[in-house]
Amino acid sequence: MGQRKAIKTGFTLVEVLVAGSILLMVMVGVSRISVQSITSGRNRMERDRIEAAIHNNIQLLQQADAKLTLESMPSNERRDACRNPAQYLKEKLDTQSGIASVPKPVVSGVDGKNPITRTIEIGESPGITVVTYSFLAPEYSIDQERRVIELNPNFQNRCILE
């Protein structure tokens, strides 16, 4: 009887280690992409909430400006309003109540605090009220962001007739 030749089947230890290393690198790459996409999605949702609150507040400011007419003002305030329309609009927007009062936008951030600050100032151009919104961006690569809107008081064009 002849000798039988042994048939070797299977993988060597080196082949298994190389295949495992390649699989590990692929899995780490996939997990990094997954984590980055989840983080990006969360940041996008946070940014959308902040942007929506600011946009809503801007619309409320424009609506309040449209409602603030000379006819809606007390007659004793009309002269002061026409002398400095931007200042008058600023005061009315900042008041706690009234037809032109608009509260600051409120959004609870990840830390529970409101990330949006709003300031209303008199612009460098006469008759312009400048509203500035600033917030810390949810993305790590971006720092402080600002949105600026300039309002020309709606009642100002009627002041010439008064």
Rank of each mutant, 00 (worst) to 15 (best):
M1P: 12
Q3Y: 09
Q3P: 05
R4T: 08
K5W: 00
K5P: 15
A6S: 12
K8Y: 13
T9F: 15
G10S: 14
G10T: 12
G10E: 13
G10N: 12
L13F: 11
V14E: 00
V16C: 12
V18G: 03
G20C: 15
S21R: 11
S21Y: 07
L23A: 13
L24W: 01
M25D: 08
V26T: 09
V26I: 10
V28Q: 06
V28L: 06
V30M: 09
S31Y: 02
R32I: 11
I33V: 12
S34M: 09
V35I: 08
V35Y: 15
S37I: 06
S37V: 08
S37K: 07
I38M: 08
G41H: 13
N43K: 09
N43Q: 09
E46C: 04
R47T: 07
D48G: 13
D48T: 11
D48I: 03
R49M: 12
I50L: 05
E51K: 06
A52K: 10
A53G: 00
I54Y: 14
N56M: 04
I58T: 14
Q59H: 05
Q59G: 07
L61W: 13
Q62C: 09
A64D: 00
D65R: 00
L70H: 08
S72G: 01
P74H: 10
P74W: 10
S75L: 10
S75R: 11
N76T: 11
N76C: 04
N76E: 14
E77S: 11
R78E: 07
R78T: 10
R79D: 06
A81L: 06
A81I: 01
C82R: 02
N84G: 04
P85F: 13
A86G: 01
Q87K: 01
L89A: 02
L89K: 02
E91D: 13
K92I: 03
G98W: 04
G98K: 05
S101P: 14
P103W: 15
G109A: 03
G112E: 13
K113N: 08
N114F: 03
I116F: 02
I116D: 00
I122P: 04
I122T: 04
G123S: 05
E124G: 09
E124L: 11
S125R: 03
P126V: 11
G127K: 13
I128N: 11
T129N: 01
V130C: 00
V131K: 02
F135L: 11
P138R: 15
P138S: 15
E139L: 01
D143Q: 07
Q144A: 14
E145I: 05
E145D: 08
R147H: 06
I149R: 01
E150H: 10
E150P: 05
N152K: 05
N152A: 12
N152D: 06
N154Q: 02
C159E: 02
L161M: 10
E162T: 05
